[in-house]
Simulated scan of single mutants.
Amino acid sequence: MVRLSMVRLTARARLALLQTALVLAAGATLAGLTYLLMRRRAFFTHLDPSGPDPSGTLPPMPAPAEDLRAFADRVQTDTLSALLTQAALALIVVTALAAMLGWLVAGRVLRPIRVISSTARRLSAENLTERVPVTTPADELSALAGTVNDMLDRIQRGVTERDRVLDSQRMFTANAAHELRTPLTTARTAIDVTLDGNPSRAELLAMAGDVRGAVEHMQRVLDGLLLLARSQAGLGAREPVDLAAVAAAALDAAQARAAAADLAVRPRLRPAPVRGEPVLLERMIGNLIDNAIRYNRPGGHLLVDTDTAGGRAVLQISNTGRQIPPGQAETLLEPFVHGQQTRVRTDSLGLGLSIVRAVTLAHQGRIAIAARTGGGLDIIVDLPQKSPRH
């Protein structure tokens, strides 16, 4: 029961009790030492009756040895008794004062902690802007307040990042559902319209073509989503890959499309070796070149540059095209964004640059995208040439 009642005491009460106990122990020790010293002095005086009286006064007149000894014993007893009584009273008064001062001091010392506690109780996931005031001078309590504020900053950043990720995931899910629902709607409409009556062979073939096109579109969407998920899941085995060789192969594969669009291709391919997953790197560079051709303008140009700098392999792709507002360039890295102010239907899925960013991040690389002054984009991807150590 005693231990339970002590546990229920507040920190202020425990601190005040501790201070009071320390004062009481120190006072009792001081009184006990004084008493022992006085007894020691009285003992030596008792051995030498000719010495001064313990009270500090001399006897009024000489007396026989027996009377002097009895007088000394009586003075000794009275003095020690008075000392104990006065010491006990003084100790009680000092202990009471120590208890009151200890309570006040404990409250003042614990005030910053109460402020921290009340601030923490007011905080929630919807309100993380309030901070604990840091007192001066710099001491343990101000350090505690600073630590709590740093923790709140990290929590706020985490909650903000969580909300951003959740919003991005909701947007991604909605766009993916829309991208898959559109070809399904197209296929169903074609089937309903064609089978409403007695369709001819030509109408059935046209319906089959529409359904096949819708299925192919859904397959491209699913392939892009799977590749995006694979890129975000991390890499498997890493192999030596030269970005220059991969870019040269991608340009060869896109040569006919570039010629049909009347584009001037300007490759400057210098060795840029890295260690990574070849399939993902090929898809990354292929998507960049495909995007640069798809959104270019007739008679424009396409620049593909590979090199190394500071222990990193650098890939730069620049293309002409329509004018893009500078603030909109970064949004092109989001899934299902086609570079329009509003989401529109195109023959592109809007996953190309999202996959590029995912592959870049999977290789611990960096990607920078900027709108060109005359139209088009500048995209720079740099990857570490050595595999990061985990």
Rank of each mutant, 00 (worst) to 15 (best):
A313D: 03
Q19R: 14
L222S: 11
A368P: 01
A256G: 05
A245N: 08
P326K: 04
P335L: 06
V134W: 07
E277H: 01
Q156I: 02
P183C: 12
V23Q: 05
D153K: 09
A237I: 10
M1G: 09
T57Y: 11
P59H: 02
G300C: 08
E203K: 07
L288A: 13
Q340W: 05
A176C: 08
I285D: 06
I113Q: 00
T360N: 07
G321R: 07
T20N: 02
L84N: 02
V105S: 09
P384K: 06
D242R: 02
L180A: 09
L97C: 05
A190N: 04
R268H: 14
A65G: 03
A329L: 02
L24D: 01
V215M: 11
G197V: 07
L30I: 08
L281M: 08
S55R: 02
G300W: 09
I289K: 00
Q232G: 07
T29L: 15
A88E: 04
V109L: 15
A368Y: 03
V93C: 11
R270V: 06
A208L: 11
V359W: 03
A371L: 05
T373L: 08
T79I: 14
R201N: 09
R230M: 09
Q323H: 11
I116N: 00
A25C: 14
L89Y: 06
A120N: 04
I380Y: 00
E161N: 11
E161I: 03
F71C: 01
P183T: 08
T173M: 09
H217I: 00
I367E: 03
R41C: 08
E179K: 11
E216N: 13
L361H: 06
R283C: 00
R312C: 12
P326Y: 07
I324A: 05
T346Y: 05
T306N: 00
R164H: 12
T182A: 13
V359Y: 03
A42E: 11
R372E: 06
D262G: 00
R181Q: 10
E330N: 05
L302D: 08
A28T: 10
V211G: 02
A256F: 11
T308M: 10
R111Y: 13
I317S: 06
G102D: 01
R212E: 15
L315V: 09
T185W: 00
R41H: 14
T186A: 13
R297I: 15
D210M: 10
S231Q: 01
D167M: 10
A13Q: 15
N149K: 04
I289L: 07
G286K: 06
L84I: 10
M61K: 04
A292K: 03
L281Q: 06
A145P: 05
A249W: 01
G102R: 04
A13F: 05
P325C: 02
D382S: 08
R40F: 13
G27F: 09
L36Q: 13
P133T: 07
P271Y: 02
I355D: 12
D53S: 15
Q364Y: 12
A42F: 04
E203H: 07
T182N: 07
L204Y: 00
A82E: 13
L101Y: 05
R312K: 14
L315S: 01
F43L: 14
H46C: 06
